[in-house]
Amino acid sequence: MPEVIFPGPEGRLEGRYHPQKESDAPIAIVLHPHPQFGGTMNNKVVYNLHYAFYNMGFTVLRFNFRGVGRSQGEYDQGVGELSDAASALDYLQSMNNNSKHCWVAGFSFGAWIGMQLLMRRPEITGFVSVSPPANMYDFSFLAPCPASGLIINGTADRVAPPADTTSLVSKLKEQKGITITHEEIEGSGHFFEEPHMETMIDGVTGYVKRRLTESTR
């Protein structure tokens, strides 16, 4: 998988880009967890999400937020990281002008950034939020949430307690015109330690495949 360097708001950003042969393949970006707690694009959940999307026929980009790995800049409380994600999507779109579907997937902090990107970019057709930290960050900006998506978390998550995630899902489900699917992985913690990783990825794959099938009918 080619390493890529592309321009971000604070200098270069480092990523991994995995193109399909088809020029009209759907595209997806995958966002990593908190940079100040060891989050990088090579996080296990992010890595597995990346390959799940690729194996479903997506052209995929994952990248390091500013100040992580070889990405320039420094941590910016989520504000700059949202700009980084927008730059990553710009880069991905510039290489894939014929793509009809655009998805964003994020894990933990990356899920929070991904949901904000959703609000900025009407071309995003679906999202996957894995272990969204609804106890740490305010998600009230999702009013209204502009696209349908999947929220998936573990029932034994101590970082982002399931009750907060359920509350977020309940608020989003009150909105008209979108469908929020919520899946809980029984017994899994925040990081989907084995054997839960495979279950989580199977859930994501099943959901995205259903959505892609519906869109082609």
Results as ranks from 00 to 15, higher is better:
158 R>V: 07
113 I>M: 07
145 C>Q: 08
148 S>F: 01
216 T>I: 12
160 A>M: 03
162 P>H: 03
162 P>N: 11
204 V>Y: 11
161 P>F: 14
148 S>A: 12
188 S>G: 05
186 E>L: 08
136 M>C: 09
157 D>Y: 08
200 M>K: 09
140 S>V: 14
189 G>F: 02
156 A>P: 04
206 G>W: 03
150 L>P: 07
133 P>E: 08
141 F>G: 04
200 M>P: 04
122 P>Y: 06
120 R>W: 09
130 V>R: 07
118 L>T: 00
164 D>W: 11
145 C>K: 07
115 M>C: 04
207 Y>P: 10
114 G>S: 11
207 Y>H: 13
144 P>Y: 07
154 G>F: 13
190 H>A: 06
188 S>Q: 05
159 V>I: 15
122 P>C: 06
163 A>L: 12
166 T>W: 01
180 I>N: 14
121 R>W: 13
160 A>H: 01
160 A>E: 08
211 R>D: 08
210 R>F: 05
210 R>M: 12
161 P>L: 14
200 M>A: 08
115 M>F: 02
197 M>F: 08
149 G>Y: 01
131 S>D: 04
169 V>F: 09
189 G>L: 05
212 L>D: 15
151 I>Q: 08
117 L>N: 09
132 P>C: 05
175 Q>R: 02
147 A>R: 15
186 E>V: 06
162 P>M: 13
191 F>E: 13
216 T>W: 00
167 S>A: 15
193 E>C: 00
194 E>M: 03
189 G>Q: 00
192 F>I: 06
209 K>T: 14
183 E>Q: 15
194 E>K: 13
112 W>A: 05
145 C>P: 03
199 T>V: 10
156 A>Q: 13
168 L>P: 01
169 V>Y: 02
144 P>R: 05
159 V>F: 10
122 P>M: 10
168 L>G: 01
201 I>E: 11
169 V>L: 09
114 G>E: 08
129 S>F: 04
135 N>D: 14
181 T>S: 12
189 G>M: 03
198 E>G: 01
196 H>A: 01
168 L>F: 06
208 V>Q: 01
161 P>C: 14
193 E>S: 05
167 S>W: 11
116 Q>H: 15
